Simulated scan of single mutants.
Amino acid sequence: MTRSARSALLALALLPATALSPILSIPAEAAAPQVRTQAPGFYRMMLGRTEITALLDGTHPFPIHEVVNGIGTASADALLERSSLAPPVEGSINAFLVNTGDRLVLIDSGAGVLYGADGGHLMANLRAAGYAPEQVDEIYLTHLHRDHVGGVDRSGSMAFPNAVIRVSRRDSDYWLDPANKATAPGFLGPMFDGAAASLKPYVAAGRLAPFDGETQLLPEIRAIPGPGHTPGHTIYQVRSDGQTLLAWGDIVHVAAIQFPYPAATLKYDSDEPDARRERERLFAEAARNGYWIAAAHISFPGLGHIRRDDQGYHWLPANYTTVMVPAAP
């Protein structure tokens, strides 16, 4: 600082408060209204030479004590507190766009209008990410619950007019059969209705193509059965240049509880013991092999890894990256 600048600051400091009052009373130009909206919900990463774009459909308050089974209220609250959370937990509804270079595949589609204001943002985020719904070639659904299938519908027409929908035949046979709705628990009724309404235009256009069991859908993507949450719940394994990502649907609903305590199940699981076994199997496999995970209900973008230690499993969120070039082989 120059001698003249120091002298000016000293003179200002010695002025009486009354002399400064005109300066201090100048209105603040920064008094702008708060925006109170979030940034566009997309996040991109490269898996080898395959581009993965996470898309947020919305967030939904998850009533932990009403829907999580297999763990006491006090224990659940203690695990949530470790993550500075309390019920209800705001859960993300994520979908994942996979660009292999010659095919554009959407894995799950969010809730669309079926969750009211909590969902329905996937299409805007898809466009913000630089894509159009007309570019999507195929849609792979992990299962047919409302928050995964609802986004394919646009007021009774196909939201993705050029796409073919792939889903396990076990799930389509179950959720699209009215006879199953009649014998299922009442709280599952909206799931049957949502699946039937959302898929109706695709069925009419011959664009619903179920598959059976473990199936290679594309050279980079394999469907692997993961039943328990629903009869035909499916994991999609994406592989590129030696890297592997598992888009695992609803293996986890509440990360703060189910990673340290995988035995916690969900009221909406079709078969809770099977859902628990599948979760424990996938946790061990993903931790052992260092797989990437794309999770439907872990905080957006839902991309990360799993680590195992003496205290159980831990979620390691993806480190933020701006590097969009293919990984070295």
Rank of each mutant, 00 (worst) to 15 (best):
D118K: 05
A86W: 01
V113N: 11
T100W: 02
N99L: 02
P87I: 03
G112E: 07
G101Q: 11
G112C: 06
S109F: 00
P87A: 10
G91Y: 01
I107C: 10
G101R: 14
L85Q: 15
V113R: 12
Y115Q: 06
V89P: 09
D118M: 06
S92M: 01
V113G: 02
P88G: 05
L85I: 00
P88N: 09
L104G: 02
V105M: 02
G119S: 15
D108A: 06
V89Q: 02
G112S: 08
F96P: 04
L104K: 12
L85M: 13
P88D: 01
P87V: 12
L106E: 03
G110D: 12
E90R: 12
G112I: 00
A111H: 07
G119V: 13
D102K: 11
G101N: 08
G91K: 03
A117Q: 10
P87E: 11
I93H: 03
N99K: 13
L97S: 03
N99S: 11
G119P: 12
D108E: 15
G119Q: 03
S92W: 11
V98Y: 05
S92R: 02
G112F: 07
I93F: 13
I107D: 06
V98H: 01
G91N: 03
L114D: 00
G91I: 04
V89M: 10
A111S: 15
V98D: 11
A86I: 03
D118Q: 11
L104A: 08
G110T: 09
V98T: 01
D108R: 00
I93D: 08
E90C: 02
G119A: 14
G112N: 04
G91M: 12
L106N: 01
G112A: 09
V113E: 14
L97W: 00
V98C: 03
L106Q: 00
N94C: 11
E90T: 09
A86E: 15
G101H: 09
A95C: 13
S92T: 14
G116E: 09
V113F: 03
A117E: 13
F96T: 05
T100G: 05
G101D: 03
G112H: 06
E90A: 13
V98S: 08
G91A: 14
S109E: 02
A111F: 10
A86D: 11
L85P: 06
G110N: 09
A117V: 08
